[in-house]
């Protein structure tokens, strides 16, 4: 899951960069870049961190 999270974080950045070629419209670019950032944030907070929380020291008996 951590690896998937990292891949999503990179994919989010890629989506943001691709906005440069997908459209020249500022509003369209803004929407795509924001979507890319949301994907990256989900990858980091939702997947990478959650994967590590599963084995957190405070969960161990």
């Amino acid at each position: 899951m951590a690896i998937l999270g990292l891949l999503l974080a990179v994919a989010g950045m890629a989506v943001s960069i691709l906005s440069l070629t997908i459209t020249a419209n500022p509003t369209g670019r803004l929407a795509i870049v924001l979507a890319g950032i949301a994907i990256s944030l989900f990858g980091i907070a939702g997947l990478v961190n959650r994967a590590y929380l599963k084995n957190a020291i405070w969960r161990k008996k």
Partner: peptide
Amino acid sequence: IGVATLLG
């Protein structure tokens, strides 16, 4: 795009 690069 800079922020996305920081995260990604």
